[in-house]
Amino acid sequence: MKDTKVKQARTGERPGAVELIQSYLMVAGTVIGIFVFVAIPLAWVIRYGMVKYKGYGKVKYVFLENIVKVFQDSVYWKSVLNTFVFAIGKLLVEIPLALVTAFILTRKIKFRNFFRAMYFMPSMISVAIMGVVFSYLFAHNTGVVNEIIKFFGGQPVMWFSSEKTSMLMLMVASIWQNFGLNMLFFMTGLQSIDPAMYEAATVDGASNTRQFLSITLPLLGPVLQMVLMNAILGSLKVTDLVLTFTNGRPNHGTEVMMTHIYKKWFETGSAMDYGYGAALTIVTAVILGAVTLIYLKTTNKSADVY
């Protein structure tokens, strides 16, 4: 009796009825949850993307009409452009800053843990709250930034009035909140590189630059690829920060894809068009998917180079 039990446990053949029932009950909660709160909503969006429905009356299938309307929506395409400007602009500063600080903090320097904790600290705070705080800092009258400019004898800037300065504020706030997080990822990647490699390279007479190019970069590659992927998608999905900080002003100058969708869903009142909102969502999801695919294709090619 005992022998067969041991054998069954080892080889893992037929699970008994009790085990089956227990397994299904244990995963049931998560499966139902994901089904109801993730899968059904996705199906809902796809279905409503093809219909005309204003919240009352009959649901009428119009298929691609809504999608065609999306392509004529100039505010939406402006928000798409804004989203990419925002993402590229801030990542051009954020990623190098994260890399440089990660390089410095993986060495043996004093107060290393203090600096690491400091840079990572902004990730603890609510993005929505930071939108409120930054709108105080950049306020036109008596905002801290303008007061500091005045203190040094400069002219106060009307930050919220122009598209350029509004976008700049968003980027600064986003970099502030996220560079420490990316730094942490890079640090884990750097720390996983075997120090013996550098020792061997030093013995062989490789210069620091050579070591960086031949050891650090190739070995950091996968981490860099993953971090960049997350950072790009995260920036393209920016929502809360924009809504609580500039709220798309001035004149949709800082409107991004997600805030445009959000406003179509929740701020149009009786003019609400279910089908059109869903179509916007579908087009946005396709854009995000396309960015992911293009990114994965190009990075895989560059990975072959090494």
């Binding site: 709160f37 899968a39 909503p41 997600m258 969708i261 969502t281 946005t284």
Partner: peptide, 17 residues
């Protein structure tokens, strides 16, 4: 579901459900 994610994309139907 992890890759498709949710967030703003599905927030409206989630709210309805």
């Amino acid at each position: 579901t992890m890759f498709i994610g949710a967030g703003t994309i599905t927030v409206f139907p989630v709210l309805r459900i």
